[in-house]
Design a protein around this nucleic acid. Structure first.
Length: 483
RNA sequence: GCCGGCGUAGUUUAAUGGUAAAACAAAGGACUCAUAAGCCUUGGAAGAUGGUCCGAUUCCAUCCGUCGGCACCA
């Protein structure tokens, strides 16, 4: 079995602040990353920022910045999430404006072109003069721009390059057939399958450079730049050094079961368009696409700034810490369905699960151990360290059911609380020292095993607990102060 | 409009053709190692109407409600 693993988030488009939905995505991908590392895999974990396009170009102009200055600032904001959310330090952060990526996108294009899947044709673009932006049907209300309803939408003829998406219907359906768990969860796979069955249309993959200067030049045509797809999606392989670094590509894309996390709005792009593009370039398809649900505001309402029910990850971390956020997005909500989030719900989860549950248990066990029982010797610690992580726990993570993995751990926590209540080792140790010590050190060992399972989910706390056990000390301050 | 999902305790979810499970929230109790935490006990649920069946929350039909997909939207 190959011991390499590749995982990526989508790249957020840098036209607004990082929001809780993306925090969820990157944290969950990080949990899977850390799990694979625990299992001995060499992991390539990718994230980054998507920085080209008309909307960004225009925002830059509005704020009197060059597009490059504008995206540089935003890229740093998003990069800040890595530290903020305790994401693995070795995550690869790719920007679609990186030289390397630009060249990779062009090479990828050339390969697809050489293979006969790119052609040029005339295309009608819907354009709002008020916005000075191209509009899509889904953006229009009654055929008009909702921001400028008094202006008629102009239809402009443009020669654009197209990708022969239609050629891949059968191959995509074969892929879904062959791999029933290609898209997780299954109802999303069904959704994309039905979409592909209805028939595929070729899609446009370039724009006139004169109108949209902020993009990757189309190879061999100085008048055109790439439009979204052949730019943004290629990051998943350009980050690996494609096409030059063949070893790395082989190691992580070809034999690293490439796994892509994304939100449900990305289903089509990841599991159909991108797969067809890979096939067109003669490259292997992804291994698995994991589709997260969305967060909704309290009461199931869509989050929006005007309603005032958005949740700012920076605020959450400031108030309750990164691990409260990590726990909430992993253990407290559904993995695949939409779930509510609010600062209040996070607080509640912090108090019950982290402060009263985990934190309190650590205090009560370590207090008993510190004042009664000798510390575990190094040999014992080593044996605990080598002990296998429970199969059930890992199986949940294998299926990306991180919430069930969390439940598994918190069940252990509950069992230990119950054990202490029923067997009262704190009393036993006073009357029967030997028996009491045995009970207490058993508890400490069980706690160690919990700490090990917490490693992917709450990396910092996991380490803290192990350290306390090694020193046989009760925490000086509660691990999670009740709030 | 077409297609699909969903509707279970106050809330979020689970399992199941034959006693409906859990978490959080609520009420009461005994304890004290612990962060007034934890433990025990209690109350509380199947959208509606029909059908199949000895028996339906589960299968079927209809209705109501709700969510999503129906392409160029990072």
């Amino acid at each position: 079995m190959s011991k390499n693993f590749y995982i990526t988030t989508t790249l957020p488009y840098v036209n607004s602040d990082p929001h809780i939905g993306f925090a969820m995505e990157i944290v969950r991908a990080d949990v899977i990353t850390r799990t694979k590392k625990l299992q001995g895999f060499e992991v390539f974990f990718n994230t980054g920022t998507d920085e080209h396009g008309q909307k960004i170009y225009q925002k830059a102009i509005e704020t009197n910045k060059s597009p490059q200055e504008y995206v540089d600032e935003w890229a740093e904001k998003f990069r800040g999430l890595i530290d903020l959310l305790q994401i693995s330090k070795d995550v690869h952060f790719i920007r679609t404006t990186d030289d390397w990526h630009v060249r990779a996108a062009q090479e990828f294009w050339k390969t697809c072109d050489k293979n006969g899947f790119i052609y040029k044709k005339s295309y009608q673009i819907k354009y709002c003069v008020g916005c000075e932006l191209e509009k899509t049907d889904s953006e229009l209300v009654d055929g008009k721009c909702p921001i400028h309803p008094n202006n008629e939408i102009e239809l402009r003829d443009e020669e654009n390059y197209f990708f022969k998406f239609s050629s891949f219907q059968k191959q995509l359906l074969d892929l879904y057939e062959k791999r029933p768990d290609f898209v997780v969860p299954d109802f999303r796979q069904n959704e994309i399958k039905l979409f592909v069955e209805r028939g595929l249309e070729d899609f446009s993959i370039s724009r006139l450079k004169s109108k949209m200067p902020w993009g990757i030049p189309v190879p061999g045509d100085p008048e055109q730049v790439m439009y979204v797809w052949f730019d943004a999606l290629v990051n998943y392989i350009s980050t690996l050094g494609y096409p030059q670094d063949k070893d790395n590509f082989q190691k992580f894309w070809v034999s690293g079961t490439p796994t892509q996390y994304c939100g449900k709005d990305n289903l089509r792009m990841q599991s159909a368009m991108w797969q067809a593009m890979l096939l067109a370039a003669g490259l292997p398809h992804s291994h698995q696409i994991v589709i997260n649900g969305f967060f909704t505001g309290e009461g199931g309402l869509k989050m929006s700034k005007s309603v005032g029910n958005t949740v700012d990850p920076y605020e959450v971390v400031e108030k309750y810490g990164a691990e409260a956020l990590r726990y909430y997005v992993c253990g407290e909500v559904s993995m695949f369905e939409d779930s509510p989030v609010s600062i209040d719900l996070i607080k509640q989860s912090y108090n019950t699960k982290l402060a009263n549950g985990l934190g309190n248990l650590v205090s009560r066990i370590m207090k008993m151990s510190e004042s009664n029982t000798p510390r575990l010797n190094e040999e014992k610690i080593e044996r605990l360290e080598e002990e296998e992580i429970p199969k059930n726990f890992l199986e949940y993570l294998e299926k990306f059911e991180i919430n069930k993995a969390c439940d598994y751990v918190w069940n252990k926590i509950g069992e230990m609380d119950k054990f202490i209540q029923e067997n009262q080792p704190f009393k036993v140790v006073k009357t029967d020292k030997e028996k009491g010590d045995k009970m207490i050190s058993d508890l400490v060992m069980r706690l160690y095993s919990v700490a090990k399972m917490l490693n992917p989910i709450l990396p910092e706390t996991s380490e803290k607990i192990k350290e306390l056990i090694k020193q046989n000390k009760t925490p000086e301050k509660p691990l999670f102060e009740r709030k």
